[in-house]
Design a protein around this nucleic acid. Structure first.
Lengths: 99, 99
DNA sequence: TGCCTTGTTCGACTGTTATCGAACAATATG
DNA sequence: CATATTGTTCGATAACAGTCGAACAAGGCA
């Protein structure tokens, strides 16, 4: 599998980021990554099928919220917290701190 | 016209707030209110018809982002910035500061 | 090579949301 | 009272987004 395309921080769009975060499943993913740092897709799948999760990861990736690193057969995901902060300071932190 | 119902800050839901902000038209409204403090619907209507705007105001109101005060025939809108901050500290500020 | 694991892609379906005209409601004002 | 102003509600339509099974792709390993 070829590496993923990750958008440049300068091109992050606020509405895309907010929309990506405005979904319970994706918010769960983001919060989990904030705790564990890095995780592959499999460990993040709860009850949802793989195809649904794959979709959510793509939305999060396209908006700039996370990056996916390929290692063998696994795809390791982590937050792009610093990069997000360079364009939207404090946004991700506020979301992560929210109840 | 009877007064509007405004949700209590303790019941604000993050996904609702993020979804409300994740729309260009509504983001524009929020940014305008941040500048001018208070404004009635008419002054916020650009090219969109009244019915569309009325819908967006309702979404913003229901999520807790703004309050609407009725004065005569006008509906004056303003951000519930402090109340939003009590539940989601820094969130609205981060959104307002974003490019 | 054959098989297992990990994820993606495709296609269809479903539910939600935005948009907008038209009719309506409420208040002020002449 | 008649009319103008301000905004809501209704109903229809169209676009979008989430869900999920099935097929596919690629790497690791026996």
């Amino acid at each position: 599998m070829a590496a993923y395309d990750h958008p440049d921080p300068a091109t992050f769009e606020l509405t895309l980021v907010l929309r990506a975060l405005a979904d319970p499943a994706r918010l769960e993913i983001v919060r989990h990554l904030a705790r564990v740092g890095e995780a592959n897709c499999a460990t993040l799948i709860g009850t949802r099928p793989k195809s649904s999760m794959s979709h959510h990861f793509q939305v999060l990736r396209d908006s700039g919220i996370l990056r996916t690193r390929i290692e063998g057969v696994q795809h390791r995901n982590s937050l792009r917290h610093e990069e997000l902060d360079t364009r939207f300071p404090g946004l991700l932190t506020a979301v992560l701190n929210a109840p």
